[in-house]
Amino acid sequence: MRKILIVDDDVDLCAEVAAMLSGEGYAVDAAHDAAGGVARARARRYDVILLDFRLPGPGAGETIGRIRAAQPHAKLFIISGKPLLESLMDDRRLAGLVDGTIGKPFSPALLLSKVRSPR
């Protein structure tokens, strides 16, 4: 079973996404802050990681770096309601660490297509 980690401080959103993805046959873990996300990433191997850009805890860049170090093979997406999310990928360093962005509010179809896309 493919494993997905979602890290977002919106507990409700995590629950709904987890419900949707479990329905599609994925095993979903959730974390609600940066430290929790990094701990999860270090504990278990994931196929896909959905990471909110603004999390309680250290800066986004640092969190992404740590998670990527722990999960070199996972597909890592930034999920955020931040305006102009796409422009994040203009940052070379960040673009080297993540596989893409998914703007909130995303549709289930979009999320599934991203999750299923090959790395």
Binding site: G81, K104, P105
Partner: peptide, 13 residues
């Protein structure tokens, strides 16, 4: 935008 899109995402899901 940021604050509102989170709940919207949750509602949609």
């Amino acid at each position: 935008a940021h604050e509102l899109r989170n709940p919207l995402a949750a509602i949609k899901m």
